[in-house]
Simulated assay, not measured.
Amino acid sequence: MADAVIDLNADLGEGFGRWTLTDDEALLSVVTSANVACGFHAGDPSTMRRVCGWAAERGVRIGAQVSYRDLAGFGRRAMEVPPEELADEVAYQIGALEVFARAAGSRVSYVKPHGALYNRAVADAEQARAVAAGVVRAGELCGGPLPVLGLPGSELLRAAGEAGLPAVAEAFADRAYTAAGTLVPRGRPGAVVHDPEAVLARAVRMARERQVTAESGETVGVRARSLCVHGDTPGAAELAGRLRLALADAGVGIEPFTR
């Protein structure tokens, strides 16, 4: 029996029309949870339908990856959205994905913000509460309180807990960490770890020891139930497969965090 258990999640459905970004089918053979773009930073109805169908066929949990309304900027640009409006937009995105998840014989099982919204909700309590409010509004449609996936110690997970939503912590094997346990901004050199061997070693250490080495060289605690595997880099599907094998070889069980 595995002495450690981790979920593997990846951002999927991040195409639009004829343009595709990730190898969704390949990644769905590796991950246990799929963060599906809901049309605000990427994705469109047909893409959402296809990815939900593939996920349902493989028993992969479907999560709504909600974002600021920023299709041109891939949801990575800072935006100022009033809290009530943001809550409505979060609920809208979840509801749209739930239609396709149900059509595939599944349901939306959790929510994870994307890009600028994810980073903003780490420290901005007001925006974090707005995201949680949107998740609450969509909860009844989706069969009950939806878990929220986010960075350990973030305002987002704090707001989720206060709103009565399950708060699930995640870690990133291919992203650099600060000494405070937050992600190094993508615009800074070294923010993304490109060495495959380093990514594999970091993933195993995070799952087994709950630790990672920050950019400063300090050891940082990372207590996470899910590990994010980025799918928008060259060779991502192959690396994800190797990562899953490395975790299994290290005695780590791979299981989704939702039913």
Rank of each mutant, 00 (worst) to 15 (best):
D232G: 04
H194M: 08
A72V: 13
L71K: 00
G63R: 00
R69S: 07
C142R: 10
W19M: 11
V220C: 03
L86V: 03
Y92P: 01
R210V: 01
L247F: 09
E140W: 01
R76K: 15
G144T: 09
R202I: 02
P83R: 10
L8S: 06
V90G: 05
P166V: 13
A123Q: 07
R61K: 15
R259E: 15
V30K: 04
D195L: 09
L239H: 04
E218M: 08
L149N: 03
V90T: 15
A176S: 15
I94K: 07
D174S: 07
R61P: 02
S106E: 10
G251Y: 12
D70N: 09
V51I: 13
I62A: 10
T182F: 08
D23A: 14
D24M: 11
F74H: 11
G217V: 14
L28R: 02
A26G: 03
D174W: 11
V111Y: 11
L27D: 06
V111C: 08
D44H: 01
L227Y: 12
A246N: 05
A34L: 05
R242P: 01
F74T: 00
L227G: 11
E162C: 04
P234F: 08
L243W: 12
A116Y: 05
T182P: 04
T22C: 08
G63A: 08
P45E: 02
